[in-house]
Amino acid sequence: MAMPKHDADGAVVDRRLDATTICFSEEPAPAASDGGSHRFALRVTCSVTRSLEFRRSGRHPKVVLQKYTKAGCDSAITFPVGDLSVLQSDGACQGALRGMLAELRQLRELHLDEDEWDAVVPADIVPQIVRVARGEDAKDGFTFCFAMNAHRRIIHGEEALLMACKERELDLDGAGTTDDCAICLDGLEGEPAVELPACPHAFHRRCISTWFSKKTTCPICRDDVRLCALRKFLNL
């Protein structure tokens, strides 16, 4: 599911959430704390991964410059089902599962938008649950167990790297000194210039923007600008 966004700085952010089923099984009815049994329950195990991708623009926009991935810890939670009818139709089951998954801490930490929550339920799990809930054996009780993975992807083009840079302020006290752009060798005064976040080097904005279309490092010290941008963009 792709969610094109614009952040406060105006850079396009393509957010995607992919929810997939890893496995599923049916088990006997869950035991209750009083020694009896609940008739129905669902047990969900959810694994979350997050990745950040920088993509080239121009003729080959789908080339990934580099992909950073962060995996979260799996956790399981069991939800008792008091009324089996909420699992016997596609629409009701989708809504019930969405409410259950919203209680998982690892999913809440993704800060999903409302329309992303609509897609957080794996597409293939609903008909499987409905089939079991409508079956002849449902009267005997069951625990429906499934494991899922939610993958949050944030995709940027080269303009995202410029967001990590800061505007260079003109040093009015240094009247006798001028800095040159290391790319075009012209003076930095007179047109917009930026300083890279990981080093003290500065360049014309137009020059470093062109440079970022080919490389993602400082032209002088070769520090990788993406590493500085990583924390900010993963928090988007």
Results as ranks from 00 to 15, higher is better:
Lys5Met: 14
Ala11Glu: 09
Leu17Ala: 01
Thr20Gln: 12
Cys23Tyr: 08
Ser33Arg: 08
Gly35Phe: 05
Gly36Cys: 08
His38Gly: 06
Leu42Arg: 07
Ser47Lys: 11
Ser51Cys: 13
Leu52Arg: 03
Glu53Gly: 03
Arg56Asn: 07
Val63His: 08
Leu65Gln: 04
Lys67Leu: 06
Thr69Asp: 02
Gly72Cys: 00
Ala76Ser: 15
Ser85Tyr: 03
Ser89Thr: 15
Gln94Trp: 07
Gln94Glu: 10
Gln94Cys: 11
Leu101Phe: 08
Leu104Ser: 02
Arg105Gly: 02
Glu109Ala: 13
Glu116Arg: 01
Trp117Asn: 00
Val121Arg: 01
Ala133Lys: 09
Asp137Met: 09
Lys139Trp: 02
Phe146Lys: 05
Ala147Arg: 08
Met148Gln: 11
Asn149Gly: 13
His151Leu: 09
His151Arg: 14
Ile154Ala: 05
Leu161Phe: 06
Leu162Glu: 10
Ala164Gly: 14
Lys166Trp: 02
Arg168Ala: 15
Glu169Tyr: 03
Gly176Ser: 06
Asp179Arg: 15
Cys181Thr: 00
Cys181Ala: 01
Ile183Leu: 15
Cys184Asn: 08
Leu185Ile: 07
Asp186Ser: 12
Asp186Thr: 07
Gly187Arg: 07
Glu189Arg: 11
Glu191Pro: 00
Val194Ala: 10
Pro197Phe: 03
Pro197Ser: 08
Ala198Glu: 07
Ala202Trp: 01
Phe203Arg: 05
Phe203Gly: 02
Arg206His: 13
Cys207Met: 01
Phe212Trp: 03
Ser213Asn: 10
Lys215Trp: 11
Ile220Asn: 01
Asp223Cys: 12
